[in-house]
Every structure is written in structure tokens, then in C-alpha cells.
């Protein structure tokens, strides 16, 4: 094979994946079984995990304090696997401060508690606009903040992963934790939307 010049740009992604997977399996680095197990583990992480944390924080002040000081430990307390995951930071919205999470450099996302990043989060438009035109961006989700609310855009550039602890809607005062968890969406925990009670 001397003199071979492999041009990766000429090989389609799917073909490259099959070849690399075959080589990694042959070398005992990643077997098909390991890959299947890893996919299953990754699929287990979903916004439902983050929503459970938010709901618990809304009903339990002690848990809320822990979640804001050490998100990783708070997640582990709810049985969410965090081993090997980057440290999790949680930022709390207040009546006059709204957080919005973005990664302008790539697509850092709190995957352990929210699952795969959504397509829009990884898009050039989201990454470019969140830091420069956050209010225009929120408007595309139909999110309009009350007058006087400041936005703090969080650019997730390094070793932490960030999620938002949104404000609990006033109408949910009598709701239990499970019902609250069912209300919270991934977009609420990134800050492009606000938790909303349907039909209000």
C-alpha cells in the first residue's frame, strides 16, 4: 500500500464509519456490543431527567440549594448517572433575570440530564444569534419576557455544562412533583422557552 494517499474528504461519512468501526472492532478497542451498550446508555439520558431535577427543586428548598451549588451531586441524588460526565452547573432564573444557554464554539450541552442536543442548538444560526440577538431569538419560540427582565446569555465554552432552573409558574402552586416534572421541557431548561401551563 506504499504511496497510498487517502483523501478523507472523498469518503462519505457512512462509509468512513463502517471502515473505522471495523478497524476498532478488529483491534479490540470498540466491539459492536460495546457500541450497542453505549448507545443504549446514551438513549437513557433525556429531558425527563432534567425535568425531575427542576420539579424537585421547586418543591424542596434543600434540594434546590444543593442543585445550585453542585448540580452533579443533585443529579446523582435522583439516581441520574453522572460518572464520566463533565461537571453540571445550574443557573437560577429570578423574577428579573432570565438565563439562556448556548455554545458558540461547538455544541456543549448538559447531555447527562437532557440527552442529545437538539438540532437547533447545534445550528449556526442559534450559535451566532444567541449571544448577539437573544431577544430576537427568543421571539422565534414565542417567548416574550416581562418588561424589566434582564437576559444573561451563558456561553458554554469550557469544562462545565449548564442548565437553567426556570421560575415555577404561579398556577402550579397546588401541583405535586410528578405533575410539575411533566410540565418542564428541554427548551425551558436551556432558556429559549418558559414553563407554561397548557390552556392558560
Amino acid at each position: 500500500m506504499a504511496g497510498t494517499v487517502l483523501r478523507l474528504e472523498e469518503v462519505a461519512g457512512e462509509r468512513l464509519l463502517r471502515a473505522v468501526a471495523a478497524l476498532l472492532a478488529a483491534k479490540g478497542i470498540a466491539s459492536p456490543t460495546e457500541i450497542t451498550e453505549q448507545i443504549a446508555m446514551t438513549d437513557n439520558a433525556s429531558p425527563a431527567q432534567g425535568a425531575r431535577m427542576v420539579a424537585r427543586a421547586w418543591v424542596d428548598p434543600q434540594f434546590r440549594a444543593l442543585m445550585l451549588s453542585d448540580g452533579t451531586r443533585a443529579a446523582e441524588m435522583l439516581g441520574i448517572p453522572m460518572r464520566g460526565a463533565p461537571p453540571l452547573g445550574v443557573l437560577e432564573d429570578t423574577p428579573d433575570l432570565h438565563h439562556l444557554i448556548v455554545c458558540t464554539l461547538c455544541s456543549c450541552y448538559p447531555r447527562a440530564v437532557l440527552g442529545y442536543p437538539p438540532f437547533w442548538y447545534k445550528s449556526g444560526a442559534y450559535r451566532a444569534r444567541a449571544v448577539r440577538d437573544p431577544r430576537g431569538l427568543l421571539a422565534e419560540w414565542g417567548t416574550v419576557l416581562d418588561p424589566g427582565v434582564r437576559i444573561r446569555v451563558v456561553d458554554s465554552t469550557a469544562d462545565y455544562r449548564w442548565m437553567v432552573l426556570p421560575l415555577r409558574p404561579a398556577e402550579t402552586a397546588k401541583w405535586n412533583e410528578d405533575r410539575l416534572a411533566a410540565l418542564v421541557r428541554e427548551t425551558d431548561m436551556i432558556g429559549v422557552t418558559l414553563p407554561r401551563v397548557a390552556g392558560d
Binding site: 443557573l91 449571544v131 448577539r132 440577538d133 437573544p134 431577544r135 434582564r150 437576559i151 444573561r152 446569555v153 451563558v154 456561553d155 458554554s156 465554552t157 469550557a158 469544562d159 462545565y160
Partner: peptide, 22 residues
């Protein structure tokens, strides 16, 4: 923490950018 309008010379007074920096 940075003041957002100072960076882009546009935007809403009071809005901020929070960035992890080594």
C-alpha cells in the same frame, strides 16, 4: 460576566454575557 450591549454596540441595556474563561 460582560455587559452585552458594550460588546456588540447593539442590544438591550442590562443584558449580559456569562462566559467560562481560563
Amino acid at each position: 460576566l460582560f455587559e452585552q450591549p458594550q460588546i456588540w454596540l447593539e442590544g438591550c441595556a442590562g443584558d449580559q454575557l456569562l462566559v467560562e474563561i481560563y
